[in-house]
């Protein structure tokens, strides 16, 4: 038994490939058997992943989900930013250049609109919960943009660590909701072509949420959504601590 653990711990990334393979196999089986394929296998797999992340997080108190358990640390590497970005770029192989260009303007508009809309909603919620300090309201609003814009804004404005933690939690809630709800609402919002996928990426902005949500909806749309989503956090870090903070301060 110790020998097995030694081998598993010395080959964490390889173990992760096997575990994820089993999860995906199980997910497609569940999808076919219980939903007749109506709920996409990859959507089931992502939900199983999130449940495992929750189990890992509550067991260890860490911030990397199941990857905080040593045996599963390879999942952290496999699902980390490095391989994720590598695979996202690979999905761009064979995209229709003309489609991408055609949706360019709508894509740009959606990034700016997306940052502002998410910020306003987040800031309004903070206000409704009784916050009146412009720094706190802006930081929580920034968290609703993405869980990276939240702490970046909080650091720039000097927000307390409790407020920064809240903003990160808001961003995580957004990201997880986008991952799980996208396949369900795709039909309703016309998310079935490259143009709307680019607008979707720009409006939602959370790279993990957008790419996972599109993967579970239609993998062909992934590169279009990812293209705009990768600009979102940068634009958010630009607008929120500057212009949007000044607007909030002027209003209070």
């Amino acid at each position: 038994m110790t020998e097995l653990l030694t081998v598993l711990n010395a080959n964490q990334l390889i173990v992760a490939f096997a575990i994820i393979g089993i999860i995906i196999w199980l997910s497609y089986w569940l999808s076919d058997t219980f939903t007749g394929g109506r709920i996409h296998g990859s959507a089931v797999a992502i939900v199983i992943g999130l449940v495992l992340a929750w189990v890992g997080g509550t067991k260890t108190g860490g911030s990397k989900g199941i990857a905080d358990i040593e045996l599963f640390a390879g999942i952290g590497v496999m699902g980390g930013a490095m391989l994720r970005d590598f695979a996202i770029v690979a999905t761009g192989f064979g995209v229709d250049w003309h489609e991408m260009k055609r949706a360019g303007v709508a894509g740009m508009v959606s990034v700016v609109a997306g940052v502002i809309v998410s910020f306003v909603v987040g800031a309004a919620v903070a206000f409704l919960f009784g916050y009146r300090d412009p720094v706190a309201i802006t930081t929580i609003g920034a968290g609703a943009v993405t869980y990276i814009v939240g702490p970046v804004t909080g650091a720039a404005l000097g927000a307390g660590s409790d407020i920064v933690a809240l903003s990160v939690a808001a961003g995580l809630a957004k990201s997880i909701l986008v991952m799980t709800s996208t396949p369900a609402v795709a039909g309703l919002i016309g998310l079935n072509n490259p143009q709307s996928a680019m607008v979707f990426g720009g409006l939602m902005g959370t790279t993990s949420g957008v790419t996972a949500g599109l993967a579970a909806t239609d993998p062909k749309l992934v590169p279009y959504g990812a293209m705009t989503a990768t600009f979102y956090t940068g634009v958010g870090c630009l607008l929120v601590p500057s212009v949007l903070f000044l607007v909030v301060r002027a209003m209070l």
């Binding site: 994820i20 992502i46 992943g49 999130l50 199941i66 599963f72 496999m78 699902g79 994720r84 790419t211």
Partner: peptide
């Protein structure tokens, strides 16, 4: 992406 989901906070 599934691995990424499993390592979310």
């Amino acid at each position: 992406v599934v691995a990424m989901a499993a390592r979310q906070n």
